[in-house]
Nucleic acid binder design. Structure first.
Lengths: 203, 203
DNA sequence: TTCAATACTTACCGTATGGTAGGTTGTCAA
DNA sequence: TTGACAACCTACCATACGGTAAGTATTGAA
């Protein structure tokens, strides 16, 4: 099938880019993963940069659609936010690859400020702020304060998501699996107390 | 002076590696920043890999020494932990470059598990766990639980630290400076409630 | 004054990379 | 049966990379 190959290219590229970064992966390496030559890849995407852009675009779209999923869960804004935040922890079947790639983009796009990632992330972040401000306790919080609070939670989630290989390396597989078991509970507790604490103004 | 050039190489390499990653920087680019040729760099460090290792080594040493600084602040383990965590937010004069590089290392060293970074990070993380367990409320917490809690706070801090360029790009310089002002206060609040919440076992 | 070491330089090399040019093959509508 | 297009391929190229080899200039101790 035609678009099947395209999709496979996107899958492979997402994985490899997330593991090695843009400069760490050659288009030949991506193609050989599918037993094709790099020219097949160039035929479908035109250039390495364009392929990367399409991978990023697909990920951000999936993050947005993840949002609308959790929106239908409850009418209580607090529960909705919590559900969404927790769903960000290993959000897709593909594991942490999308999160890793977004983290790389966060690190890299200083030089490519005009690139896709920047704009794709914006609605996602603004939606998060909207969600916390919908909670009565946070209603009067300045937007900057709400953003700081939500970004801290986002960091708590994403930082851990990308750390698995390193933590396994440092502490060993057994200790890591214990940590991994403890993490979700502890995360829920953190989100609970952070949301309950409210903005500075209410303190 | 002899070691002056070496130190300048380390400074430049740290900055460039933190911005573009290992594969994104050529040794020629680093050298030309100091108006030297890449052979001057190779003369001092032998190879690109070794230079990178030395940069990483220097950073981790600085992080460790940051720890002993805050240790002298107070005898109350809770205050000591809080002081240390807050000091991790933009820890050095060089800005977020060290944090960025460590984050990259976190992303990259899956393939270089034997590399320096892995081992350097270990004492730092274990010290953090020791610090939280020294707090009475956390004394009986399983180590994995304590680690999860501390790692979430670490993520909240570091994730934000590396996001400045992207957030400025998305929201503009004015909005970002508002966020940047709100962040430390909100961070203190988060640390406070997270530490106060204690481990699951106490809930 | 000599010698050796340090701190560089130019010249060069093999390899890998992204991308171009120009095929070949299969499919499917007219 | 033809013609066009998609989906690849091989061959090739210019560039950039990390690293080696072999110098040169400076300095400071014997």
């Amino acid at each position: 099938m035609a678009s099947d190959t395209r999709e496979q290219f996107l899958d492979t590229a997402e994985l490899l880019f997330s593991e090695r970064g843009f400069y760490g992966v050659s288009i030949a390496a991506i193609a050989s993963e599918l037993d094709l030559t790099k020219q097949a890849l160039l035929h479908h995407f035109g250039s390495k940069e364009k392929l990367y852009g399409e991978v990023l675009k697909r990920i951000s779209q999936q993050f947005v659609s993840l949002e609308s999923d959790s929106a239908s869960q409850s009418n209580d804004p607090e529960i909705r936010l919590k559900t969404y935040l927790i769903s960000l922890h290993t959000p897709f079947e593909r594991g942490a690859a999308p999160t890793r790639l977004l983290m790389r983009e966060l690190l890299d796009n200083k030089r490519r400020a005009d690139s896709a990632g920047t704009w794709y992330l914006k609605p996602f972040l603004e939606r998060l702020v909207d969600m916390i401000i919908a909670i009565p306790r946070w209603q009067n919080a300045p937007r900057a304060e709400a953003f700081a609070a939500i970004y801290q939670l986002l960091g708590a989630i994403n930082y851990y998501s990308i750390s698995q290989p390193t933590l396994t390396g440092i502490f060993g597989a057994d200790a890591y699996s214990e940590i991994d078991q403890a993490f979700p509970t502890q995360l829920e507790r953190l989100i609970d107390v952070a949301v309950a604490a409210g903005p500075k103004s209410t303190a």
